[in-house]
Design a protein around this nucleic acid. Structure first.
Lengths: 210, 210, 210, 210
DNA sequence: CATGAATGAGCTTTCATTCAT
DNA sequence: TATGAATGAAAGCTCATTCAT
């Protein structure tokens, strides 16, 4: 396996899927890769296996993706987009009016989207993501949540003790995400324990008010 | 590369290194692997390169380790032991008398041992560790710290608002470790910012007192 | 790449290009192939790249050529025809009246047509030509020049010492062409040196008179 | 086949063959490659076929050669060395005392070593050599012969009409080699015709005396 | 006639592992 | 015990070619 030792600049897709058939093929490949990654691990996600499960030939796979990593990158991207959209949807739906309500919304949303993506998949996707320069992307995603918190918190100054400096926002977002990530990685039972959710909320609020 | 498709049950070492020479060879191999892993990435850590840098033949390597993963596992174990020992040493040295002092000791120790092990290495070791079912070990290590906090906190009940249930300990330890881990992974500048250390302490104390 | 392992009997063209549009398409494909061959080398001359540069689909290419080698063969043929025509034109133009004048005409013409086709292209076309049994064709082309020399030389018997037997004609033509070919292959500076042209003429005349 | 589009800088050998066994393996691979090249053409000379015919595994081949082209380069080098040595041997043996005797020696030697290497092999080796920047090497080899002629001719000034300038030497050597090469490429019967050898000598002498 | 998505045989190369010396 | 030459399964990827639309 001649994979990127140093993080690779992601190659562009071979061809933009234009026609309906193309789009379906593209999606089938991404889905196949996601399934194998999730169920069998990264080592098993060979280009041959992915193509086979997608029901296309290996040549077709390479007509849509420049190389193996491009396929994995597409899976990661799709996953991230799904999660982001879900979080945004839930927050919009809840329309939180206080810092506490916002924190509850976000943490609830995070737990909700992550619960079904237990250990194996996350673990693998994270590992793959790491190899690909993309921890910056991950950070950016988290920072967007941080900005959200900061902006809303600004509207409820009474609930925030000290000003939300960048370092404080960083600490807060990474602490919450880190606890969630650990629970996923360890496939911990706490993921399904309402008390865990409650404690995460308390943690965030206690810190905001400290 | 026929590497662990499904998580492997770790094979036992080929031989327990008894004699002095054996022990030195064993250590040389682990050190060589650690260096390559850290400086050049996992892809470069082939058995041949490891043996070469260790100054032994490939055959000798296989006399000390059952397979390639056994070498990586040894590196991970050595790394973890180093970190644990360092933390214990610092706490004993500081002999903290309050929950706050304890928290400061632990967080200070964690930052101190992690700062020099920036992104590259961590990332790689974590990735390798993941592939090897060993996140249980990681969890165990963190839980030992949790137990430490719980036991010491029990001695200063006035500083802890609500009882330190397992879920609370879990949340606390994973939040702090997660924030640290994220800073490392993102190779964030906050790692060197004293304000970050201060905020981590505040986070822990705020939560304990909440 | 399932290219000619044993020299292939050249497949006939799929269709004789009759109509104007067809002819233009055919020519566009040959021209595209020639350009890629010349500028980027044989490796780059894939059917896909050729079709793309020709502005047709890969399917269309296969409607005009039986296979990839048929395209290359067409390029080689076109190239040879161009060279032959140019030489004939120059000789007719000069209307040489002595053996020396004829030799000068031919050598001047050869140098003139070859100068712009330096190393890269020649090398590639020759390599491709070799693979295709076609050195017979090359020989035939050269022999035509030989016949030309023999016939004209027959008109100036006083300038030729010994009778121009087939072996002598063979030696003469191959020596001159070989020197030219070498200069091209080595991309030698002598190609632009008038002294080289003069020496080739001397070589031919000295041999004819010996 | 991802072969060198632009001429490649030849990679060094993987390991210098030290031990007797190694040397035998190395030689077996080169010999196997030479045979396949000669009998079946370059397309058939895949790494797998070469290793198979050499009676070693594909892995072993790659322990001695950095890549496929390195194997072909070794074949070419071996071939060239064989030819050079043979020519040198024959000249030394004949100990020519006149320019004519020297010319006869050289041309005789060239014909003798080339006769058994007819078309196929030459053709293929030349094609392969071209792809590898090595026409400079070929030129260098020929130039060594040129230098030989020049130096010896300097000793017999009466036999040389005009001074042997670089351009003249170039013209002479390339013309003779070119005629020989053509005969090989075309697999011409003249190769076995003593008259051809005689005419080549005449050509060279006539030119030297012109 | 033109298109281009799909095909898949087959290539080069890597590297963990074995075992005769 | 140490060595390192040899192994070979298996991976990523290319590209000539076909054929349904």
């Amino acid at each position: 396996m001649a994979r990127a030792p140093a993080p690779k600049a992601p190659k562009p897709l071979r061809k933009a899927p234009r026609q309906a058939r193309s789009e379906a093929t593209f999606a089938a490949i991404v889905e196949a890769a996601a399934q194998i990654l999730e169920r069998e691990g990264e080592e098993e996600a060979t280009t041959a296996r992915i193509a086979e499960r997608a029901g296309v030939s290996i040549g077709t796979l390479y007509q849509y993706f420049a190389d193996r990593d491009a396929v994995l990158a597409a899976v990661i991207r799709r996953d991230r987009e799904t999660v982001s959209a879900e979080i945004a949807r839930r927050i919009a739906e809840g329309d939180p009016k206080t810092a506490e309500a916002l924190v509850r919304s976000i943490i609830g949303a995070l737990l909700a989207v992550m619960r079904p993506r237990r250990r194996r998949r996350r673990l693998i996707l994270l590992g793959a993501a790491m190899r690909m320069q993309s921890s910056e992307d991950v950070a950016a995603t988290i920072d967007r949540i941080g900005a959200l918190i900061a902006s809303v918190a600004a509207r409820y100054p009474t609930e925030v003790a000290r000003p939300l400096t960048p370092v404080r926002t960083y600490t807060l977002t990474r602490a919450v995400m880190g606890a969630l990530r650990a629970a996923m990685m360890e496939n911990s039972r706490v993921l399904d324990d309402p008390a865990f959710e409650e404690e995460l909320v308390r943690l965030a609020l206690a810190y905001l008010r400290a």
